[in-house]
Design a binder for these strands. Sequence first.
DNA 1: AACACTTTTTTCATTGAGTGAAAGCACCGC
DNA 2: GCGGTGCTTTCACTCAATGAAAAAAGTGTT
Lengths: 266, 266
Amino acid sequence: MTDAALAPSDAPVAATRSVTARALSILGVFSMERPSLTLSEISRATGLPVATVYRLAGELEEGRFLDRDEDGRYSLGLYLWEMGMLTPVHGRLREIAMPFLLNLQYTCRETVQLAVIDGIDAIYIEKLSMVESAPVQSRIGARIPLHATGVGKALLAFSSPTFVDTVLGMPLMRFTDETTTSRHTLAKQLAQIVDDGYARSRAEYLVGSTSIAAPVLVSGVVKAAIGIVNYEDTNLDEWAPALLHASQALGARLEELRWGTKEEKK
Amino acid sequence: MTDAALAPSDAPVAATRSVTARALSILGVFSMERPSLTLSEISRATGLPVATVYRLAGELEEGRFLDRDEDGRYSLGLYLWEMGMLTPVHGRLREIAMPFLLNLQYTCRETVQLAVIDGIDAIYIEKLSMVESAPVQSRIGARIPLHATGVGKALLAFSSPTFVDTVLGMPLMRFTDETTTSRHTLAKQLAQIVDDGYARSRAEYLVGSTSIAAPVLVSGVVKAAIGIVNYEDTNLDEWAPALLHASQALGARLEELRWGTKEEKK
DNA sequence: AACACTTTTTTCATTGAGTGAAAGCACCGC
DNA sequence: GCGGTGCTTTCACTCAATGAAAAAAGTGTT
């Protein structure tokens, strides 16, 4: 990505008038690709005048939301990470899921992942891998399409019909030759997944990657999905029983812990 | 914690005049103990007028920094978690450390933890446990004293003399009967730890918990510490070789990856 | 070492975004 | 129906945020 991509013309972004929104938009310009930025880069990326960014970034730094290294480059602060750890996805889901994921990982020794739905994407909440295999696409925090991965399809298959319709109503992006882009085929696959209890995916999102994934159901609604992936294109079905056991056990545990959460209204 | 603890009188907190600082202070009132709050609770906790909190929280919600459930309660938003994942501790440390931690966990099957220094505390960055053993004190994101835990002492022992002096200069809080509170004794322990290459701790912070921990050195400076803990008071020294292997391998890996970081200036 | 260029920091007069008291609603429990 | 509490909206006032501009500090080129 060149600097030109951040030219003011490309950034009608923060046409917002409110101070708060401006400050938040500063935090928003950091990304996996650009984990640290200079003052003027932020200014260009947000479309805000340097002087304004200077002041706001200063306040964010004061609040420990931003760090500034000796070169003057800004990066997201540790405090932000600490807050992330207070978030429900972490405290109420990842924390509780961890022992189940570890046990599963221990059993099959493949990469294990946990994902949830956010908007019309899936997000990886956790990924346990004993090797440094990490293709960028499957980093923790990464957003991935619901129609083209194991966990995605597991999440979708057990979602409400109206939500499925919404997703099927949108263009199904193609990522590889194997990506399912036909609504009809996908619908059939989803039905099959419900039948089987788990989803399979081969090279639909990333060439060479294979996965199986099962939903985590709490009182009948999908809260997450657990997946097993590898990047060697070997068959994973032998692990289906272990996967199902883990996802069901986690679901049961979450149900047990539903200390007064009234989320079933949804 | 009663609600009285949040009474206005206790909260001269946000005497700040700046809008940004006010908005950020709203995020700051969420904690492990209070992961979700109502509008008026936030108002009391921050000392800001309800109307102000109403507006600011509304903007934070718009920016997806806060979530609001159907009951109107606010909680920290998923976006905040996503940002946490972009933070250096996650992307540059945890991500890289994970395979090493998993391998260690796989070897010894005890709880494995990763911690770094922040200010004069240690912070747990990761904790891998196959059982739901989690005492609140050792949650990921929790701050713990440098003088009273395995990872803490490992971090401290390999820190710069000036930093050690700073920490020894502060009151060493007592947590259990076993906590080392004498500067002199602690200094001797630290020297011993440097000699041994790893730290030991028994019930110094939490009764019944035992741990060993080794520093992760990158170009000779401590960047983190890896620890093995259990809560059954059994001896862990048998795992010292595996622990040292993991921490050294991680250190080497981090050194290898230091793509242009000029942190050695420090 | 002087020059052209970029980035960061500081200043300051101007103004409109943020403010919060107060009133209006909504929702309890009694 | 009636106090009590919490959430939302309004609005006149004002002070904090603004950003152009100048100064300062750095970076690279000839």
